[in-house]
Design a protein around this nucleic acid. Structure first.
Lengths: 122, 122
DNA sequence: TGTCTATGTTGACGCTCATCGATACAGGTG
DNA sequence: CACCTGTATCGATGAGCGTCAACATAGACA
């Protein structure tokens, strides 16, 4: 967990088996398998609370945020924890415990891969 | 017709200078309202069947596709129609009837706005 | 007019998910 | 050790969603 990737499209084993994968959506139709994997990433950002949590982490200084810094999104603490777990499972966030607190940070390669897919052809 | 106009989607007229609803997610935290509006777009791509349908339209020659061209995604015809409607409601696709067939095409500005949000801060 | 094809809508069913309170776990402090 | 704070997990519940069969609608053509 110590090497930073440039912007690879194919990366062996990020997070837990989540691999950013696919060409721009305008290039060719996705296969069923590709769609299954990729939809999970978009789905992770498809909830308002999760999207806010993600932007709170992404925009926090130092590129990381303690849970205590971002918990004020209008839902209970267990729900915040639940959503952070979902974002982690989707490969969008990573977490690390330092003492009492747990810090989350964005996984740049996965986010970059998603952005790549939304690139308009032409 | 559903009249729940709580969150109006993007107008089809935004074609020129890519009027993004929101800044890159790394720039600042989203407000609750921004998150609500934006999550709906990501949610639309958060289903494997919808993502395939979208990529089928996006990668089809001429930038548009008749429903008959993209219906082979492993679900029934009503389900295809249902998902295309969802994508349309999210502002990602537009449709037009020409004679017997209905053609769908990608709304580039909305897709571009989504890509904008996923830009990694440099 | 009637019929055929293409697409959208309706209603129902089962499953997933967001949410919460209660509880468990981890680490710091006294 | 006990106690407190920060975070994760568990179990339940209600809402939402994907799917289908059946039906409806729109246009083309005879």
């Amino acid at each position: 967990m110590s090497n930073i990737k440039a912007l690879p499209l194919l990366e062996p084993e990020v997070a837990e088996g989540v691999v950013p994968c696919c060409p721009p959506l305008t290039e060719r139709p996705l296969t069923a398998e590709e769609a299954e994997r990729t939809a999970a990433m978009f789905k992770a950002l498809g909830d308002p609370v999760r999207l806010r949590l993600f932007s709170l982490v992404a925009s926090h200084e130092g590129g990381e945020a303690c849970v205590c810094d971002i918990s004020d999104v209008g839902v209970s603490q267990p729900t915040v924890s639940h959503h952070l777990k979902k974002l982690k499972e989707a490969g969008l966030l990573t977490s690390e415990r330092r003492g009492t607190w747990v810090y989350y940070r964005v996984e740049p390669s996965v986010v970059a891969a998603m952005g790549q897919m939304l690139k308009i052809a032409g």
